[in-house]
Structure formats: structure tokens, C-alpha cells
């Protein structure tokens, strides 16, 4: 028996919008600690890791660890039927091949339930160890989205370089080149407008802009985004979900051969 009641149902709607284009089918794992997901895109280049901690739900009951395979496109269709202010409850019974999403309007005068078929998904789960990164950039998520969108109109790949001067996003395409440099800026009115660069060592990595732009669909989940870079590792692009957890995207770099 599983029953997860999320008062801020819009968070789940936003999560689905953020990940459904990257991953078609995924197993949602439910345990006493929270509701989570890890899934790779079909080409094994990008991975999404979602965590919604149990404490973030108004009511959280998960009698035993359960994995529920869902088609994210279909789940998104159902969650789009929930209002932005609705309370969303996810319900499941042991051994059942369906999951139910219940939507309650804030005034309790409209209650809907949508039952979705589950599916068996043979998903590969990767062990991602904690790592020390050479550089961590925290910046406004809207600024990161703007940069990725702008650069994608010029080129296909972005080189992200962190030095003590700042963080540089560069691209090159048939029509020319583009470089955008952000300097550390902590003298802002609101902390979420700051750009903070923590650098242990300079680092420069190349990534496909198509995936970066897909990650920025999570922009509405968080005012800030954290980009962790190491020359030996995939980049981690993390959007915190207020007091609940995170959506993290991992992207393997491109290398010169």
C-alpha cells in the first residue's frame, strides 16, 4: 500500500515537464525515505535523478519498497489534468498493475481520480558515487536557460570553462562563434540572483547543447541552478526542489579524438 499526498501538486507537474522529453519510460522507486527516480535517455548520454523526500509530503505512506514503471508521456498527460493549485495524491496497491493520481482542488469542491496502467521496465541503474568537483558554479536558472538557448542558435556544442576570471560558455557554428563570460557576482539584492563560482582547479569541458537545453525545462522548479564540473566526470546540472529534494541531470562530455 502506497499513499503519497503532495499539497503543492504543481511541483510534480513541473517535474514531469522537466524530464518527459529526455526519458520515455522510467521506474519510480518508493521507499520509506522518499519517492525517487533514476533514468537514462535512450542513447545513454544523459541521466536524470529525481528525489522527493518523504518529509516533503503532507502524508507519506509506503509500506514496502516499490518500483512502479511509468510511461512519462502518459503520466504527464494525466498530471496536466490537475490544476496548478491542486493537491495531488499518488496511490498504489501491492501487486497492482495500475497507479492512481487523485487531484483535489484547494477548496475540496472538485475531486478527480485518474488511474494509469503501469508497465514493466527493464531499466539500467547506475551507481553514481559522491565526487569532488574541480569547479561548482551556482547561478540564476533563468540566466543559464537563456545562455543555452542563445548558444544553440549558433552552434551544437558548448564549451564550459571555469577559470579564476569566471565561467565562460562558448560555441562555434557555420555562421560564427559566441562567447559568454559570467563573473562571480554576489553583490545582488536577492541571493538567488547571485553567480557564485567555487573553483579548486580550472576546468574546461565540451557538451552537446541539445541535452543542456532539455535540462533547462526544469527552470521553473528552482530560481538557481548548480553546475558541477570535473575533467574526469560527466557534468551535473542540479535544480533544487524547495525543501523536498532535487532534479539532477548528468551529461557525459564530448572529447576530441
Amino acid at each position: 500500500m502506497l499513499e503519497l499526498r503532495l499539497v503543492q501538486g504543481s511541483l510534480l507537474k513541473k517535474v514531469l515537464e522537466a524530464i518527459k522529453d529526455l526519458v520515455n519510460d522510467a521506474n519510480f522507486d518508493c521507499s520509506s525515505s522518499g519517492f525517487s527516480l533514476q533514468a537514462m535517455d535512450s542513447s545513454h548520454v544523459a541521466l536524470v535523478a529525481l528525489l522527493l523526500r518523504a518529509e516533503g509530503f503532507e502524508h507519506y505512506r509506503c509500506d514496502r519498497n516499490t518500483s512502479m514503471g511509468m510511461n512519462l508521456g502518459n503520466m504527464s498527460k494525466m498530471l496536466k489534468c490537475a490544476g496548478n493549485d491542486d493537491i495531488i495524491t499518488i496511490k498504489g496497491d501491492d501487486g497492482s498493475d495500475t497507479v492512481t493520481f487523485m487531484f483535489e482542488s484547494p477548496t475540496q469542491d472538485k475531486i478527480a481520480d485518474f488511474e494509469m496502467k503501469l508497465m514493466d521496465i527493464d531499466s539500467e541503474h547506475l551507481g553514481i558515487p559522491e565526487a569532488e568537483y574541480q569547479a561548482i558554479v551556482t547561478m540564476p536558472s533563468s540566466e543559464f536557460a537563456r545562455i543555452c538557448k542563445d548558444l544553440a542558435s549558433i552552434g551544437d556544442t558548448v564549451v564550459i570553462s571555469v577559470t579564476k576570471e569566471g565561467v565562460k560558455f562558448s560555441t562555434r557554428g557555420d555562421i560564427g562563434t559566441a562567447n559568454i563570460v559570467l563573473r562571480q557576482n554576489t553583490t545582488v539584492d536577492k541571493p538567488e540572483d547571485a553567480t557564485v563560482i567555487e573553483m579548486n582547479e580550472p576546468v574546461s569541458l565540451t557538451f552537446a547543447l541539445r541535452y543542456m537545453n532539455s535540462f533547462t525545462k526544469a527552470t521553473s522548479l528552482s530560481n538557481t541552478v548548480k553546475i558541477s564540473l570535473s575533467s574526469e566526470l560527466p557534468v551535473v546540472v542540479e535544480y533544487k526542489i524547495a525543501e523536498m529534494g532535487y532534479v539532477r541531470f548528468y551529461l557525459a562530455p564530448k572529447i576530441e579524438e
Partner: peptide, 14 residues
């Protein structure tokens, strides 16, 4: 020539 690496080259199956 740029080559796109895969995540499975960095992380093991758990």
C-alpha cells in the same frame, strides 16, 4: 573530431 562519450563509460551498473 569530437566524440560523444556515454555515461556507462564513467559509471558502473548498480
Amino acid at each position: 573530431k569530437r566524440v560523444q562519450l556515454k555515461l556507462t563509460e564513467f559509471y558502473q551498473s548498480a
